[in-house]
Design a protein around this nucleic acid. Structure first.
Length: 364
DNA sequence: AACCCGGGGCC
DNA sequence: GGCCCAGGGTT
């Protein structure tokens, strides 16, 4: 199968089988850019409702550039990898101030945008501007490694460079954006990690992995390290006015720009209430009484897991000061929904709000 | 090159 | 449980 035949088979399949996506076929470089940022390490079905909501809040790059970061993060809340939102927001200002409000249509300039790497640059240039740049994402790696029978570890830079060269050679002149999307669509819907649907695949005829019955072995990936598990203690500090204390995480930290209930990791041979007292002293410079357990929950991040133990607390001495955090604030339970919280903390705010609505006893 | 960075769905 | 996902940034 030569390149022309592969392209026409793939594009014909794509024309008949592509899924509907709100940014697909819109021709708006801003929307395509935002969609590609949201789709980094995120499935289409997960990103789609966020994309719709994002466009309602920020229909143009100017709306995004003028928005407050807190507002952007609130719309992004729950989607994860929050540096994407901060970088996108910063990049929108660059587009407005340096590029006349137009998403760059060339490789050099688009790579000046924060959060835009090789994949996203190629995706936006090809899909929005019909420029011939081949993308390489997890789908392309899987499809091409199977098609060409590449058995090397695809986590290495060397193997990725080889696959990128194949993609560069295969990409269609006439429809580079559709070709890229077709390859990814094939990987997302037919050429899946397990149980691929080879019987209906348009590339079956020349696929090395199919012909040698090795689709379950290719692509080969070296194992990842297993994630450590930490015990985390946090304090829900309430005052006489039934307000709770929340802290703003620094922009350069994990979950940067989001709010949380202060706390931290349990030390060895330390009781959890002592952990909470110690952490709140370190982070806020206050002495608290740990009154009673409020909630225990498990949560998984990319590189570790936690069990979070939340306690209702009361300040005995001192006034909370932002030490490890950027800012602290007393707010009413009703206002918790107005602030961006990471998922694990959001589970705590939901319980607080439910109890509050039910007039339950939040007293300690 | 290795590590960091969320959350959700699937097996 | 682990794996995967339309990856990029930092060290």
């Amino acid at each position: 199968m030569n390149n022309t035949e592969l392209q026409s088979r793939l594009l014909d399949w794509y024309d008949q089988n592509k899924r509907n996506m709100p940014w697909r076929g819109c021709g708006d470089p801003y929307k395509i850019w935002v969609s590609e940022i949201m789709l980094q390490q995120t499935r289409v079905d997960q990103a789609t409702p966020y994309f719709e909501r994002f466009m309602e809040h920020f229909p143009t790059v100017h709306d995004l550039a003028q928005a407050d970061q807190q507002e952007v993060l609130k719309v992004w809340e729950g989607l994860g990898y929050y540096s994407r939102a901060r970088h996108l927001h910063a990049a929108s200002k660059l587009v407005v101030n340096e590029f006349d409000g137009k998403v760059p249509d060339n490789w050099e300039d688009i790579n000046k945008l924060k959060g835009v790497g090789p994949y996203t640059a190629a995706a936006v240039l090809s899909i929005a501007f019909q420029k011939k740049h081949a993308v390489m994402d997890g789908n392309v790696i899987r499809v091409l490694s199977r098609y060409f029978g590449i058995e090397d570890n695809v986590r290495t830079t060397k193997t990725k460079n080889i696959i990128q060269e194949y993609a560069d050679e295969l990409i269609s002149e006439e429809r580079p954006g559709d070709f890229n999307q077709a390859l990814m669509e094939l990987g997302a819907t037919l050429c899946t990690p397990s149980s691929p649907e080879c019987e209906v695949c348009p590339l079956q005829k020349n696929c090395v992995a199919f012909k040698t019955l090795r689709t379950e072995e290719i692509p080969y990936k070296s194992k990842k390290k297993k994630r450590p598990h930490h015990q985390i203690g946090v304090g829900i500090i309430m005052n006489k006015e039934e307000e709770v204390l929340i802290a703003l995480r620094p922009n350069d930290a994990m979950l940067g720009g989001l709010w949380e209930f202060p706390g931290g990791k349990q030390n060895e041979d330390e009781e959890m209430p002592d952990t909470v007292r110690r952490e709140l002293k370190e982070e806020l410079d206050v002495d608290v009484a740990v009154k009673k357990p409020f909630m225990k929950l498990d949560h998984a991040y990319s590189h570790f897991k936690i069990t979070m133990h939340a306690y209702l607390c009361e300040i005995q001495k001192g006034t909370p000061k932002p030490k490890s955090s950027q800012e602290v604030r007393w707010i009413s339970i009703d206002e918790l929904d107005d602030y961006p919280f990471p998922k694990a903390n959001r589970k705590l705010t939901e319980k607080l709000m439910n109890l509050n609505r039910g007039q339950q006893e939040l007293e300690i």
